[in-house]
């Protein structure tokens, strides 16, 4: 989480996509995965997203996600062939479920992690997103990277109480583990959301004048390329 959501500070990678294009890609990408007629098509979609991630400079996250995705597909295939009946249905259904959602998660992660908050805000201003929608949305976007910091503290607190903050701990004692994570996280989340909102309203975020931005946002060739490619993928669904 930490590594992917913090790189937005730096300009990395070959592509720098406009936030408006990103919204479009996210929408089209999700529809395409949802409508995908065959597994081969879904894999094509995942590969496309991976490529996009690499072009945008999100290397580690993309690769990690790809390994995970391959794993899920392997589990599905192997499970289907070799597992005994009862477990097979359970495992395979779960794998299909994860496989279906996965490209969307990957795409979302890549796009969010490459967006600067101020770019996002001025882009949303351009498409005349109302302020009362934009402000909470931005607070949310800003909260994500903070969760990873919170998580480090909570993990330490859990270890001191002899509650294991790992997957194994979760399997052994799900109720307790969930409680340990969500209670402090919820408490701090509401506090942080308040403080972030305060920091923004006292600096005039609600000003109705169209917001300007230090980094000018513009459509580039990369935006056109991505738009055409994703639109073509969606078009393909209807012709195959």
């Amino acid at each position: 989480m930490k590594s992917i959501l913090q790189i937005s500070t730096y300009k990395r990678g070959i592509f720098h996509i406009d936030p408006r294009t990103k919204l479009f890609l996210l929408f089209v990408g999700n529809v395409t995965v949802f409508l995908a007629p065959a597994i081969s098509y879904e894999i094509l979609m995942a590969a496309t997203i991976l490529m996009l991630g690499v072009l945008c400079g999100v290397y580690r996250f993309s690769i990690k996600m790809m390994v995970f995705y391959t794993g899920v597909i392997l589990i599905q295939v192997v499970g289907d062939l070799y597992f005994p009946n009862g477990i097979r249905i359970l495992v395979v259904t779960f794998a299909i479920f994860v496989r279906k959602i996965f490209p969307c998660v990957m795409l979302g992660g890549i796009l969010v992690s490459t967006t600067r908050v101020n770019e996002f805000m001025s882009a949303m201003n351009r498409i005349h997103m109302p302020k009362n929608v934009l402000v909470p949305l931005t607070v949310m976007l800003r909260y994500f990277p903070m969760v990873s910091e919170e998580w480090v503290h909570i993990k330490n607190a859990m270890k001191m109480r002899d509650v294991s903050p790992t997957l194994l701990g979760f399997i052994k004692n799900p109720g307790q583990t969930v409680e340990c994570i969500y209670v402090p996280l919820l408490m701090s989340a509401s506090k942080i959301a308040d403080e972030l909102s305060i920091a923004s309203v006292t600096r005039g975020i609600e000003n109705p004048k169209p917001r300007t931005c230090l980094q000018q946002i513009k459509f580039h060739t990369a935006d056109a390329l991505c738009t055409i490619y994703f639109a073509a993928l969606l078009g393909l669904v209807f012709f195959v």
Partner: peptide, 22 residues
């Protein structure tokens, strides 16, 4: 920690004056 709206310092310094639409 929670007074920041941006994740980079330059954007944060201009956050207020961006809202003023300079």
């Amino acid at each position: 920690r929670s007074q920041f709206f941006n994740v980079d310092t330059d954007s944060e310094i201009v956050f207020g004056i961006e809202n003023l639409a300079y």
